[in-house]
Every structure is written in structure tokens, then in C-alpha cells.
């Protein structure tokens, strides 16, 4: 079947103030043909000036990420006919949240700088008497984050990065977990302190785009959640993100529900909460101000408290067990 493929083009060398424009190509699509196949066909047979990146054609190198009908995907692992059937159209555009160099090619320098920022290599502890053992469980903990091929789909879709270009963003944060979560890492706490600062783990807006559009199932949001948990467990809680989470956990344990007023106060602290007063008055005029004192608790709150306690107990036990299960450890290493 014949399909019209529209490509968003941009050439910085064209004229004084070049603007992106859409160019359409008609291609003969066959069953199983990928978006990359179609781009190669256009470049080979019709328009050698069309700019796009590609290399392996096997979803390994991560070069060919583009937006297909509005969403970031690997051109080499996206079939063109299903896309056409779904939207009645095929529009190819460069990744979002990156500056365009030419046509579908974007500037990846900021992407690499973000990677740099999370120190993407292991810092072993200064002295270890015996070699560290890595169990299968330990390896699995960082397994997802190791699957990243640095294609940039997640950063392109990231809603927080769209607003704040300084945000470390999902690709680098997922990479950060690869090292923080590695049992051989010696400076995990230092890393977590850095990651808890502005533009770090707490700036993620949980839009779930990164996890939805990652072509390799890295699930960056999940890695960010693990970084957050680990940071809080390491006692790095002097920031609004962690305070926000802590107040939520306390609120559920206390009344079983989210206590908005108490949460605002605990997250922002006294002085910044004062700044919220004009907004609060406006809310109150519409009956929208939540009152912490009259907040009703759920029935059988004791069950929730019991679950919290059991969980804490379980965690303690888990640690002890981990140390004592020498034999079990050996076995899982063999499996690795």
C-alpha cells in the first residue's frame, strides 16, 4: 500500500531565520516495514538531503529515536502500517526537549551532560578486605536500569523537562539508580545527597511518560521511586520532596487518609505556609480549605497501624536473614 509520510524538516543553513516545515513523501509500504525502513527508502531513492540518525537497525544502539505521530519511539522497532492504521497518518518529528540540529537530528550534548552529572561509573569503597559478593538478587535490583540504550525517548516525553531544562531527567536518574543500587558502590549516600538537591529526584512530576515510552522497559519512574526511598532511608529528608512523602506516610498511619492542611504545613514549613495564607483565604471563600482538626479518621485505623508495624518488623528480620544465609547466597551466585 502507498502511504504518505510527513516529515518535520529543519535546516539551519537555509536563509537568515529558518523555520521548521513539513515535507511529505509517498512510499510503498509493505507488511512489517519499519519507520526506519521508510526513512532509508526516502533517503536512498527520493531525497538524500533528509537528515536522521541510525545505526544498528535492531533496537540496540539507540540512535534512531524520533516522534512517530506525536510520541517518541525507535524508528527501527516501530512498524509503519500499524501506525498509519491507528492515526490515518504518519508524521515523523524530532525528539522533544532537545534542540534540533537538522531535520530529525537533535543535539544530544545536554543529554550526555545530564549523564555526566550522575557520575556514571562505580566508586568502590576505598578498602575491601575480601572481594564483594554479588548475589542474583543484588544483580536483579539494578537489572532494569542496565537495559538503557540511551535513545532519549524518556527525556523527550518527560513533562518536567519540558518546563525545567535543568532537570536531571529520567534517563540520567535511571542511570543513577544503576550505581546507587549496586552493592559494590562505596558512595551511595553521597550520590543520594546530590540527587536530592534541586533539579534532582524530587522534581519528577510522576507523569509516567518515561515508563510508558521507554522501548527497553527500563521503567525510569520505578528507578526514581527507588532512589527516593533509598534517599529517605539514608536520612536525607531535609528537602520538600522528602517532607511531602513523610507527611503523607504519617497522615495515613494517623487517620488513614491524606490530611491536606497538615501536609502543606509539614512540607512547606512555617514561613512558607504563611505565604500560602492569601491563597488559603481565597480557597476558604469557596469552602475549599481543609481543616486538620475536624479531619475524620477511617474505620478500623488499627489495621493500618498494624500493617505499618508488621512491615517495619519484617524489614528488620529481612536484614538479619540476609546476613545469615551464607549458603543461599552461594547458590544464587552460581545462578548468575
Amino acid at each position: 500500500m502507498k502511504i504518505k509520510v510527513k516529515v518535520k524538516r529543519f535546516n539551519p543553513m537555509e536563509g537568515a531565520s529558518p523555520e521548521p516545515y513539513i515535507q511529505a513523501y509517498i512510499i510503498k509500504a509493505t507488511e512489517g516495514m519499519t519507520v526506519l525502513d521508510s526513512l532509508l527508502e526516502i533517503a536512498d531513492n527520493e531525497d538524500p538531503t533528509l537528515g536522521f540518525r541510525r545505526s544498528c537497525r535492531s533496537a540496540i544502539c539507540g540512535s534512531c529515536a524520533v516522534r512517530v505521530n506525536g510520541f517518541s519511539k525507535l524508528a527501527c522497532s516501530t512498524q509503519i502500517i500499524p501506525e498509519y492504521r491507528k492515526k490515518g497518518d504518519v508524521l515523523l518529528e524530532p525528539l522533544l526537549n532537545h534542540n534540533i540540529l537538522k531535520d530529525l537530528i537533535v543535539d544530544f550534548d545536554p543529554f550526555w551532560k545530564k549523564m555526566d552529572r550522575v557520575t556514571p561509573f562505580l566508586t568502590p569503597p576505598p578498602e575491601t578486605k575480601e572481594p564483594l559478593k554479588v548475589t542474583k538478587e543484588d544483580a536483579l535490583a539494578i537489572d532494569s536500569s542496565q537495559k538503557c540504550i540511551m535513545c532519549g525517548c524518556c527525556n523527550s516525553e518527560c513533562n518536567a523537562l519540558e518546563i525545567d531544562r535543568k532537570f536531571t531527567a529520567p534517563a540520567a536518574l535511571a542511570k543513577a539508580w544503576r550505581f546507587v543500587g549496586d552493592v559494590r558502590e562505596g558512595e551511595a549516600t553521597k550520590r543520594l545527597e546530590r540527587l536530592s538537591k534541586e533539579h534532582g529526584i524530587w522534581d519528577c512530576v510522576r507523569c509516567v511518560h518515561c515508563t510508558q515510552y521507554c522501548p527497553k522497559d527500563v521503567a525510569p519512574l520505578k528507578q526514581i521511586e527507588m532512589l527516593r526511598s533509598r534517599a529517605m532511608k539514608a536520612g536525607i529528608v531535609d528537602n520538600q520532596g522528602a517532607k511531602h512523602v513523610e507527611s503523607m506516610a504519617q497522615s495515613i498511619k494517623r487517620v488513614g487518609r491524606l490530611d491536606e492542611a497538615a501536609m502543606t504545613f509539614k512540607t512547606l514549613g512555617f514561613l512558607r505556609s504563611l505565604g500560602m495564607i492569601p491563597f488559603g483565604i481565597k480557597m476558604e471563600m469557596h469552602g475549599k480549605m481543609p481543616f486538620p482538626l475536624i479531619f475524620s479518621q477511617i474505620e478500623k485505623i488499627d489495621e493500618v497501624k498494624r500493617i505499618y508495624e508488621e512491615m517495619e518488623k519484617g524489614k528488620g528480620k529481612g536484614k538479619g536473614k540476609g546476613k545469615g544465609k551464607g549458603k543461599g547466597k552461594g547458590k544464587s551466585e552460581e545462578e548468575v
Binding site: 529517605m232 511531602h244 512523602v245 503523607m248 506516610a249 487518609r257
Partner: peptide, 11 residues
């Protein structure tokens, strides 16, 4: 009880 709004997953 409250679902945790994602914040409990962080916790």
C-alpha cells in the same frame, strides 16, 4: 485508607 497517591511508593 488512602492509596498513597504514589508518594507511598516513594516511601
Amino acid at each position: 485508607n488512602c492509596c498513597g497517591a504514589g508518594l507511598m511508593t516513594d516511601y
